[in-house]
Amino acid sequence: MKNLISMRDLSKKEILYFMEIAEKIEKGELNLNMDKKLAALLFFEPSTRTHFSFATAMKKIGGQTITMRGTSSSSVKKGETFADTLQTIAQYAEIIIMRSPIEGAARYASEVVDIPVVNAGDGANQHPTQALLDLYSIIKTQGTLENLTIGVAGDLRFGRTVHSLVQALSEFTPRFKFISPSFLKMPTYILDDLLEKNIKFEELAEIDEKIDELDILYVTRIQKERFADPEDYEKVKGSYILEKSMLSNVKENFKVMHPLPRVDEISTDVDDTEFAYYFPQAKNGVYMRQAIISILLGGVK
C-alpha cells in the first residue's frame, strides 16, 4: 500500500492489518525508527487537533515534520498550480499528509507525487485516518468489530466522519441505529449502500431511545448554523444531548465515542463514568497514525 486516500480503497484484510500494527505499536512490540524521515503536513483548512495528532504520531516514531497552512503562505496564491506546489514539497519530504476543503485533493496529490500521501480530510468526502482510529477504538473496547450494535447520533447528513465510519463498519455485519433530527438524517446514498449489503439499520429521534441495546454510541456535534431558524435548534437540541441519567441500564461493554471537539452534546457528568471513551479515543488516534505513517513509509516489516 502506497497511499491512504479513502476507506473505499481498503479491503477488510487491510483494515485489520492497520488494527494489528496499531496494537503492536501501543504495546511497544514494534521498534520503529523514522529518524531520517520528514512528513510534510499540508493543512489547507484549519484543523488543530488532526494536525496535532499527526505531528505527535510522527515525532513518537522518531520522525520530523514541516507544516504548511492555508494557501496564503504558499505559492498557490501566486498562481502556481497545485501540482507544482505538491511536486516541490515532494522534493523535501518523505510523506505528505494533507487536509483540504477541496474534495478529491488528496487523491489528485497521490497521482502527482511519487511519495506516499495520507488524506487527513478532503472536504465532505473522506477522513480515513479518523475512520481507522474509530475502528481501533471499537476493537479495543469490544474485542471485535463483528456483529456489533452501533448507535450514531448527531449530524448524520453532513458528517464526513460518520459516513466513513459507517462505510468502514459495513464490512463487519453491524446493526446501526441512526439518531438525528429529520433534516440531518443519513443521506439516501449511504442508506442505499447499506440496504444493498443487507445491513440492518433503524432511524430514531431520541438519543436514549434504544440505548440499552447498543455496544457503542458514537456522538457527533450538531452545528447550530445548520438550522435556518435558531429556535428550531433550541427545540430539538435536548433530544441529542447525552446525559449520565440515560446510562443506568446500558450494557456492560457499552462505550460512548466522539471525534471531538465536543460542545454540549455529551454532558460533562458522563465523563467520569466507565462508559466515556472519547479521550482514550483521541489517544488511539496517535497509535493509529503512527501505524499508518510507518506502514506507508515501509517501516513495518
Binding site: 479513502s6 473505499r8 498550480t81 497545485f82 501540482a83 477541496i102 474534495e103 478529491g104 487523491r107 489528485y108 478532503d122 472536504g123 468526502n125 473522506q126
Partner: peptide, 25 residues
C-alpha cells in the same frame, strides 16, 4: 478547480450512474 482530466466509474447501469474518481460522489 484544477485542470485535471475527469475520471468516472460506472457503478450502476439501470439507471445509469457514475462515481467521480476524485470526490467520490
Amino acid at each position: 478547480s484544477e485542470i485535471i482530466k475527469t475520471k468516472f466509474k460506472v457503478t450502476d447501469e439501470k439507471p445509469l450512474q457514475v462515481r467521480c474518481h476524485y470526490c467520490e460522489k
